[in-house]
Amino acid sequence: MILADEAIVTVYSDFTAILLLFGLITISTRFKSKINERRLFYIMCILIIFDSIGSLGSHAMHYQTAEWCYTVEILSKTFMEISELFVIYFWLLFVDYKLFESKDHLKRKFKGLFIVMVAFSILLLINPFTNIMFIIDRTDMWFVPTPLYHCMEIFEVTCVLLTFYVIYSYRNRKNKLHFFKVWPMMLPIAIGVIVSLITYYSAIPLGLAIGTLGLYFSMMETWKYEERDTGFYNKAYLDKLVDIAGTNGYDYRSAICIETKEDHLFEEALKKELPADKKIIHLKEGLFVFFSENAKMNFLNMVGQMLTESTKEYEDRHNNVKIDLKITNYVRKKDEEASDFIKRFV
């Protein structure tokens, strides 16, 4: 089988993308934890590997005339398109979860998009028999899109634009993205798309792979604020909070301190029973803090009650387990700066 030069370049670029992500998911031990953000990221990596494999198979078959090449080409292209669709959708989910840290938020906002994505995936799956999404020219294996394919492209672009909207809406609430950078992911993808548009070569999988690695590196820098296995914030985060306290979204007015002797059990109870969006700082063995912008006593009591109930539920599920909690509420004084309030706990 002799490949055309431009096919060789694309195949090589896809090959390097696969190597890059294969290394990432194999070496990193961080994916073993059950933290949702890392799970989403891991799924994204796998999907980009699938996308690269699809692209590799598809481009290797360009200008081939054998019948089996046609079959491989159409299957690879289908595989690649479905993977790409899922990558874009998961990127949107990842951005939303990274910022709002809530599974409920995801379910509420992106259920509709999920249905559209599944519908397009089904159309792509039946495409080899119906040609409703794209046609592969049998003479030179060239790709011919149908109007429905362009609809799918519009959907994909919409999902990408939605990620920017998610970031914009988050920034309206909290003025800075302190623990998240978008450019490490978006810039290489944009370069990959531009290269694919202006040259004969497709560099989108490579752009995606480098972007994913950049994003992973960027995430690693924020891990110094998180406990390795639980994902709770650590003492370093409290120091960081002192610096950013008072800014929009970090103008904390109250805090709830939880003391317990059963540190590990309480961690497990929190992880299982609490809603995912409640980020708690694990200050030291047996001491947890939760900051809030809401200083009303009703709210603080409600959170305290929720913590007690969560622990109780955990105790009920696990016989012979008893977790004693001591919950104390703190409210910021009127003349006290937000940073001074946080320093009380440092």
């Binding site: 030069d5 060789i8 370049v9 090589y12 670029s13 390097t16 040259t199 070569y201 490579l206 480098i210």
Partner: peptide, 14 residues
């Protein structure tokens, strides 16, 4: 520049 050399240049930029 040949197509393959263009490919190497692209990967070097990457």
């Amino acid at each position: 520049i040949s197509n393959l050399d263009q490919g190497t240049i692209m990967i070097d930029f990457a």
